[in-house]
């Protein structure tokens, strides 16, 4: 019966879509969703929940790729064992602007699907 939606599906469609805000990260939106960019381009996600980037650092924009995370500076010359893994340092280090590490160099925008 292709024209008669199942009751469960109707209920799901009528349920308000839930959006969860991570104050330091993405907006979580129940999927499927379409995001319309500044240029009018529409990009869709079928995932049960989509994480929409709010920090503008994502290299897979509009989807979050965890680039919003705090970055920890570590001493490049320290022997591996002495490297500050994270610890208290991690929680007090603040981000300064667009401090992409070397990862992002040469990254092309075509990577964002």
């Amino acid at each position: 019966m292709p024209n008669a939606p199942e009751p469960a599906q109707t209920a799901r469609e009528q349920r308000p879509r839930r959006v969860t805000i991570d104050p330091e990260g993405p907006l979580l939106v129940e999927g499927p969703v379409e995001v319309v960019g500044d240029d009018g381009r529409v990009i869709a996600s079928r995932r049960f929940t989509a994480a929409i980037c709010t920090c503008r650092r994502s290299r897979t924009y509009p989807w979050c790729d965890t680039s919003h995370r705090r970055r920890v500076r570590r001493d490049e010359n320290a022997p591996p064992d002495a490297e500050p893994e994270t610890g208290t340092d991690a929680r007090t280090t603040t981000r300064t602007g667009k401090d992409h590490d070397q990862d992002s160099e040469g990254e092309e925008s075509t990577d964002a699907r």
Binding site: T66, R69, V72, R73, E76, P80, D101, Q102
Partner: peptide, 21 residues
């Protein structure tokens, strides 16, 4: 979890991912 929710700046000598990249 907080220890995992940060990213090192630059190259990490002990990370397989950093090495392979």
């Amino acid at each position: 979890l907080a220890e995992l929710l940060v990213e090192p700046v630059g190259y990490s000598r002990t990370s397989v991912g950093h090495h392979l990249q």
